[in-house]
């Protein structure tokens, strides 16, 4: 009886997620094995693994894989380091603490499309953008961010969005630090580095795991920031796997190749998730 109830309650969630996963997956596998281009009607003949070959040998393929990892890696490192520094900075009471927190958290609620347009035009525009004006104020040559450093520009935008998230989680975690232990360490003459290394860092390890896991999930599919700003270019300089599939599927109208690419992305995500969830699942269980 109990078992039946438990199953019954689980069914809607498991069933719908299963459908949500399996239907597109099976369709993708089917599409990826046939010749299917929306621009060239005709027989959808079976062509084996040619679509995969085409996708993997695309000159943009390896750059896209590399960019995906660079993007995820740098954003995670930036948000962890600065998030932790900021959290430590605003942890103890000071005048206006709550307002500072509200300001810090805000970028997290900005939708990716707005984030991208805001940075592209008002911040990074080489003539009228705020950054250009700051550069000029210091007598430097304004930088054409999106042209010269496309991937870096995307990393900046995405980091700006996720920094508040990391910061907030660290703030929350710091609030449960053992005050007496800290006091004792200070009494014994522990300096800041020692306090950080032996007290703060171990305490924050669990939140680091959470931040890495959530950011991985969301950063694997960064799309809007690239779509609205650099369009993956110049060349493939800011194309990640997600954007490459979009280009194949919707701009080249090649459903077959795009499906092969989609399956590759799913594979990539699964490799990442196996490693990640194993490691992080453990630290969450503690």
């Amino acid at each position: 009886m109990k078992k039946f109830t438990a199953r019954f309650l689980l069914t809607p969630a498991v069933g719908s997620l299963f459908l949500w996963m399996i239907v597109p997956l099976v369709m993708s596998i089917y599409f990826s094995l046939i010749r299917y281009n929306l621009m060239s009607p005709g027989e959808h003949e079976y062509i084996g693994l040619m679509n995969y070959e085409f996708f993997v040998t695309d000159p943009a393929f390896w750059p896209a894989v590399l960019n995906t990892f660079l993007l995820i890696g740098s954003v995670i490192v930036i948000t962890l380091v600065f998030g932790m520094a900021l959290a430590l900075l605003v942890n103890d009471k000071f005048p206006g603490q709550s307002i500072v927190r509200v300001l810090l958290i805000s970028p997290f609620f900005v939708m990716p499309a707005v984030n991208a347009l805001l940075w592209k035009h008002m911040m990074m525009n080489p003539i009228y953008g705020v950054l250009a004006q700051v550069w000029r104020f210091f007598g430097a040559q304004p930088v054409n961010w999106l042209e010269s450093y496309p991937l870096l520009s995307v990393i900046i935008m995405v980091s700006w969005q996720w920094l508040p998230f990391a910061c907030l989680i660290f703030i929350t975690s710091l609030q449960s630090m053992d005050r007496e232990q800290l006091e004792a360490a200070r009494m014994d003459g522990a300096n800041y580095v020692q306090q950080f290394r032996y007290l703060y860092l171990p305490h924050l390890s669990r939140s680091v795991a959470v931040v890495v896991m959530i950011e991985m999930i969301f950063l694997l599919s960064v799309f809007a920031e690239i779509f609205t700003t650099t369009g993956g270019g110049p060349g493939f300089a800011s194309t990640n796997v997600a954007f490459l599939i979009f280009v194949q599927g919707l701009m080249n109208f090649d459903v077959g190749v795009a499906s092969a690419g989609g399956l590759f992305a799913v594979l990539l995500a699964n490799i990442a998730s196996v490693f990640l969830i194993r490691i992080i699942g453990k630290s969450l269980e503690k």
Partner: peptide, 26 residues
């Protein structure tokens, strides 16, 4: 239970672009 939870989260890791075309067709 643990495996089920991990599986659920792994569906979230699937990039949306990867399944855009099938979803669009459906």
């Amino acid at each position: 239970t643990k495996d089920l939870l991990v599986w659920m989260l792994s569906t979230k890791m699937m990039p949306a672009v990867g399944v855009l075309i099938p979803v669009y067709v459906v």
